[in-house]
Measured scan of single mutants.
Amino acid sequence: MQGVVKVNSALNMRSGPGSNYGVIGTLRNNDKVEIIKEVDGAYEIRFNGKVGYASKSYITIVN
């Protein structure tokens, strides 16, 4: 499943599905991501070869 990031500035990509996990990357508006699955209000995603988590509130599914 594919998604597009929709933010005003940037969205943190984290090592786990919550803000208490470390930041492993930054997503920008209109970045395209692969959605692997939904976990606790976040999506597990793949972006630029990395797998991490981002809030589903800022990712629009575009299948």
Rank of each mutant, 00 (worst) to 15 (best):
residue 17 P to L: 08
residue 43 Y to Q: 00
residue 55 S to G: 09
residue 4 V to N: 03
residue 41 G to T: 08
residue 19 S to D: 15
residue 56 K to H: 04
residue 63 N to W: 11
residue 22 G to S: 15
residue 8 N to R: 14
residue 28 R to M: 12
residue 17 P to S: 04
residue 61 I to W: 04
residue 32 K to W: 12
residue 54 A to L: 07
residue 24 I to S: 04
residue 47 F to P: 00
residue 39 V to Q: 06
residue 46 R to T: 07
residue 20 N to I: 09
residue 17 P to G: 03
residue 29 N to F: 08
residue 14 R to D: 04
residue 45 I to Y: 00
residue 10 A to E: 14
residue 50 K to C: 09
residue 57 S to I: 14
residue 57 S to G: 11
residue 29 N to C: 10
residue 5 V to N: 01
residue 49 G to V: 02
residue 45 I to A: 00
residue 21 Y to M: 08
residue 22 G to P: 15
residue 23 V to L: 05
residue 35 I to P: 00
residue 19 S to L: 13
residue 63 N to Q: 12
residue 37 K to D: 10
residue 8 N to Y: 11
residue 53 Y to A: 01
residue 29 N to V: 05
residue 55 S to K: 09
residue 18 G to P: 02
residue 53 Y to M: 02
residue 11 L to F: 07
residue 39 V to T: 07
residue 9 S to T: 13
residue 27 L to M: 05
residue 35 I to D: 01
residue 50 K to Q: 12
residue 42 A to W: 15
residue 43 Y to T: 00
residue 31 D to I: 03
residue 30 N to V: 02
residue 16 G to M: 03
residue 52 G to M: 02
residue 6 K to T: 11
residue 10 A to W: 15
residue 41 G to Q: 09
residue 18 G to L: 05
residue 16 G to Q: 05
residue 13 M to S: 02
residue 43 Y to F: 09
residue 31 D to Q: 06
residue 5 V to Q: 01
residue 3 G to Y: 03
residue 46 R to L: 12
residue 57 S to K: 15
residue 23 V to Y: 05
residue 53 Y to P: 00
residue 39 V to W: 09
residue 17 P to V: 07
residue 59 I to S: 00
residue 3 G to A: 06
residue 28 R to F: 12
residue 60 T to K: 13
residue 55 S to F: 08
residue 49 G to C: 07
residue 9 S to N: 12
residue 58 Y to C: 14
residue 4 V to L: 10
residue 59 I to M: 02
residue 18 G to W: 04
residue 44 E to Q: 14
residue 14 R to C: 14
residue 44 E to A: 08
residue 32 K to M: 13
residue 6 K to I: 10
residue 53 Y to G: 00
residue 40 D to F: 11
residue 52 G to D: 01
residue 7 V to Q: 03
residue 51 V to F: 07
residue 13 M to T: 02
residue 15 S to E: 12
residue 13 M to V: 15
residue 40 D to G: 13
residue 19 S to Y: 12
residue 40 D to R: 10
residue 58 Y to V: 06
residue 23 V to W: 04
residue 54 A to G: 03
residue 34 E to S: 09
residue 29 N to A: 07
residue 32 K to C: 13
residue 35 I to H: 00
residue 31 D to W: 04
residue 1 M to V: 12
residue 33 V to M: 02
residue 19 S to F: 11
residue 41 G to D: 12
residue 25 G to F: 10
residue 60 T to G: 06
residue 63 N to K: 11
residue 48 N to H: 10
residue 40 D to V: 07
residue 12 N to S: 14
residue 28 R to C: 13
residue 35 I to G: 00
residue 29 N to M: 08
residue 43 Y to D: 00
residue 35 I to W: 01
residue 16 G to R: 05
residue 24 I to T: 06
residue 20 N to W: 12
residue 19 S to A: 13
residue 58 Y to D: 08
residue 51 V to M: 08
residue 49 G to K: 05
residue 55 S to N: 14
residue 10 A to Y: 15
residue 50 K to A: 09
residue 2 Q to T: 12
residue 50 K to R: 10
residue 54 A to P: 01
residue 15 S to I: 07
residue 25 G to T: 11
residue 8 N to C: 15
residue 57 S to Q: 15
residue 60 T to W: 14
residue 15 S to Q: 07
residue 12 N to C: 15
residue 54 A to D: 01
residue 62 V to H: 08
residue 7 V to E: 03
residue 3 G to P: 01
residue 15 S to L: 07
residue 1 M to T: 11
residue 2 Q to L: 13
residue 55 S to L: 11
residue 58 Y to H: 12
residue 25 G to Y: 10
residue 29 N to S: 07
residue 21 Y to K: 05
residue 42 A to R: 09
residue 47 F to E: 01
residue 51 V to H: 09
residue 36 I to L: 13
residue 51 V to E: 05
residue 59 I to L: 03
residue 53 Y to H: 01
residue 26 T to G: 03
residue 8 N to G: 11
residue 9 S to C: 15
residue 40 D to H: 10
residue 6 K to N: 10
residue 24 I to R: 02
residue 57 S to N: 13
residue 19 S to M: 13
residue 57 S to H: 14
residue 19 S to P: 15
residue 28 R to S: 10
residue 34 E to G: 04
residue 26 T to M: 10
residue 22 G to T: 15
residue 61 I to A: 05
residue 48 N to W: 06
residue 54 A to C: 14
residue 54 A to Q: 01
residue 59 I to N: 00
residue 62 V to Y: 09
residue 30 N to T: 04
residue 31 D to E: 06
residue 1 M to I: 13
residue 43 Y to I: 02
residue 53 Y to V: 02
residue 57 S to A: 14
residue 16 G to E: 06
residue 19 S to T: 12
residue 23 V to T: 08
residue 14 R to K: 07
residue 31 D to F: 04
residue 14 R to L: 14
residue 47 F to R: 03
residue 37 K to I: 05
residue 3 G to V: 03
residue 45 I to Q: 00
residue 2 Q to M: 14
residue 38 E to M: 06
residue 47 F to I: 06
residue 19 S to E: 15
residue 8 N to S: 13
residue 7 V to C: 15
residue 56 K to T: 10
residue 27 L to D: 00
residue 38 E to F: 04
residue 54 A to F: 03
residue 30 N to M: 09
residue 52 G to C: 03
residue 26 T to V: 14
residue 24 I to L: 06
residue 32 K to P: 07
residue 40 D to W: 10
residue 26 T to L: 12
residue 63 N to F: 11
residue 48 N to E: 13
residue 5 V to P: 01
residue 41 G to V: 04
residue 6 K to C: 14
residue 43 Y to P: 00
residue 58 Y to N: 10
residue 33 V to I: 06
residue 35 I to A: 01
residue 12 N to M: 13
residue 62 V to P: 07
residue 6 K to S: 10
residue 24 I to E: 03
residue 49 G to Q: 05
residue 15 S to F: 05
residue 3 G to R: 01
residue 32 K to T: 11
residue 33 V to Q: 00
residue 53 Y to L: 02
residue 10 A to F: 15
residue 23 V to P: 05
residue 48 N to S: 07
residue 13 M to N: 02
residue 9 S to A: 10
residue 60 T to S: 12
residue 36 I to P: 00
residue 16 G to S: 08
residue 63 N to P: 13
residue 33 V to C: 05
residue 29 N to Q: 07
residue 9 S to G: 15
residue 31 D to L: 03
residue 6 K to D: 04
residue 24 I to D: 01
residue 3 G to L: 02
residue 49 G to Y: 04
residue 14 R to M: 14
residue 15 S to K: 08
residue 56 K to Y: 03
residue 1 M to Y: 10
residue 41 G to Y: 08
residue 19 S to G: 11
residue 39 V to E: 06
residue 11 L to P: 02
residue 45 I to E: 00
residue 46 R to Q: 08
residue 39 V to A: 06
residue 59 I to C: 02
residue 28 R to T: 08
residue 1 M to H: 10
residue 24 I to Y: 01
residue 22 G to H: 14
residue 31 D to A: 07
residue 15 S to T: 09
residue 7 V to P: 02
residue 40 D to M: 11
residue 7 V to G: 09
residue 3 G to F: 03
residue 36 I to W: 04
residue 20 N to H: 13
residue 20 N to F: 10
residue 48 N to K: 12
residue 40 D to P: 08
residue 29 N to E: 06
residue 54 A to K: 01
residue 38 E to P: 04
residue 21 Y to I: 03
residue 53 Y to T: 01
residue 54 A to R: 01
residue 34 E to H: 10
residue 44 E to M: 15
residue 30 N to H: 08
residue 34 E to K: 06
residue 25 G to L: 12
residue 56 K to G: 04
residue 26 T to N: 06
residue 24 I to W: 01
residue 23 V to Q: 04
residue 51 V to W: 06
residue 33 V to P: 01
residue 37 K to V: 04
residue 11 L to Q: 09
residue 21 Y to C: 15
residue 34 E to N: 06
residue 4 V to A: 04
residue 27 L to G: 01
residue 40 D to A: 12
residue 53 Y to D: 01
residue 47 F to S: 05
residue 26 T to F: 10
residue 13 M to I: 15
residue 53 Y to E: 01
residue 28 R to V: 10
residue 45 I to L: 08
residue 9 S to R: 13
residue 18 G to D: 10
residue 17 P to H: 05
residue 36 I to C: 08
residue 33 V to T: 01
residue 44 E to T: 02
residue 29 N to T: 07
residue 35 I to T: 00
residue 45 I to F: 05
residue 46 R to V: 12
residue 3 G to I: 03
residue 13 M to F: 12
residue 51 V to Y: 07
residue 56 K to I: 10
residue 31 D to P: 01
residue 22 G to A: 15
residue 57 S to L: 14
residue 61 I to H: 04
residue 1 M to E: 06
residue 63 N to E: 12
residue 33 V to A: 01
residue 18 G to Y: 06
residue 55 S to R: 08
residue 60 T to R: 12
residue 63 N to A: 12
residue 5 V to M: 02
residue 41 G to L: 07
residue 45 I to P: 00
residue 30 N to A: 07
residue 47 F to K: 03
residue 1 M to C: 14
residue 48 N to I: 04
residue 26 T to Q: 13
residue 58 Y to M: 06
residue 50 K to L: 14
residue 57 S to M: 14
residue 46 R to W: 10
residue 61 I to Q: 05
residue 36 I to N: 03
residue 50 K to Y: 07
residue 34 E to W: 14
residue 63 N to V: 12
residue 53 Y to W: 14
residue 7 V to K: 09
residue 25 G to K: 04
residue 55 S to V: 10
residue 3 G to K: 01
residue 41 G to H: 09
residue 16 G to D: 06
residue 50 K to G: 06
residue 22 G to M: 14
residue 39 V to P: 01
residue 34 E to M: 11
residue 32 K to N: 08
residue 18 G to F: 04
residue 8 N to W: 10
residue 17 P to Y: 05
residue 39 V to Y: 09
residue 2 Q to V: 14
residue 13 M to P: 02
residue 14 R to W: 15
residue 52 G to R: 00
residue 12 N to P: 15
residue 34 E to Q: 10
residue 7 V to T: 15
residue 2 Q to G: 06
residue 13 M to E: 02
residue 17 P to Q: 04
residue 15 S to Y: 06
residue 51 V to T: 11
residue 41 G to N: 11
residue 49 G to D: 09
residue 60 T to Q: 14
residue 44 E to I: 10
residue 2 Q to E: 11
residue 37 K to N: 12
residue 56 K to L: 05
residue 8 N to D: 14
residue 62 V to I: 13
residue 11 L to S: 04
residue 32 K to Y: 12
residue 52 G to K: 01
residue 34 E to D: 10
residue 37 K to G: 14
residue 16 G to T: 05
residue 41 G to F: 08
residue 11 L to A: 11
residue 15 S to W: 06
residue 22 G to E: 15
